[in-house]
Amino acid sequence: MTTYCVPGSISEALEILGRYDGDALIIAGGTDVLPDIRKGKRSPRCLVDITHIPGLDQITVAREYVEVGAAVTFSALAQHPYLQSHVQALVDAAAAVGSADIQNAATWAGNLVQALPAADGAVVALALEAQVLVHDKDGMRGLPVARLFAGPGRSFVDPTRQIITAVRFRIPERPWGTGWRRIGRRDSLVLPILNCATVLELAGGHIIRAAIALGPVAPTPFRATAAEEFLIGQPPGDEAFAEAARLVQRESNPRSSRARASREYRLAALPALVLDALTLASRRAQEKLELQRRERTG
């Protein structure tokens, strides 16, 4: 018989984890935990449900950052007005996870701990240069999502000893936009053949920061740094994006999967995917730019 604990605070949750010494497991939505238990991948003596800890179900939009509590579901992300108008890639990625009723339970933080190479939540988190706030017996620290993934399905956060309490990402000062594009064998309830999240920051008619994240083109969610570096200083547009897409293709190293697609296909389709996601991000950044300009003149 499993013990089911519903702690009221992070310290209480940590205390329970400590008491079980590796035999307790954090559960948020549980949409991954339950199948893992059924298949014998995990056999916790205690489930520690963190969704009732005050504050963890909050999305905080501060001046410089957005913080998403660990109990925030993908549905809540997808329906958040600020995110809908400013961080569309996150909204689109959240709406791509499983299906609506899975999004009602599953959380962004949980998706990150699962660390699948194509996890929609992980790819968008990487592009947003998000960090997770990790609590354990030694205290609290911020861990960049880029350093979270240990390998396919393995993260450096151990949910039997550590708790991710929030995912946080910076809001750029300058006009910025995000893009999301996904290819799958169908529209929902399916892991992607490819997914891509982009962030562009503009100033003076040029790109001053670019982030391009993809899955599954490497053992863990992947940042296309060569393409990002190329974009800096370039004027946004088809020409620059097409070249960036070619560079992404060169630095990606996808695998073949019989149920989804071959390496060759992934490489061939990748430029269009990146191009689309960059175009979206650029259009949204330009819209913000336009808005700022109008605000200033108006």
Binding site: Y4, V6, G30, L34, P35, D49, S75, I102, N104
Partner: peptide
């Protein structure tokens, strides 16, 4: 009031 998949919902969660 929210739709969830009963096969992925731990019964401990519905207390």
């Amino acid at each position: 009031g929210q739709p969830v998949r009963a096969c992925l919902t731990a019964v401990g969660k519905v207390a």
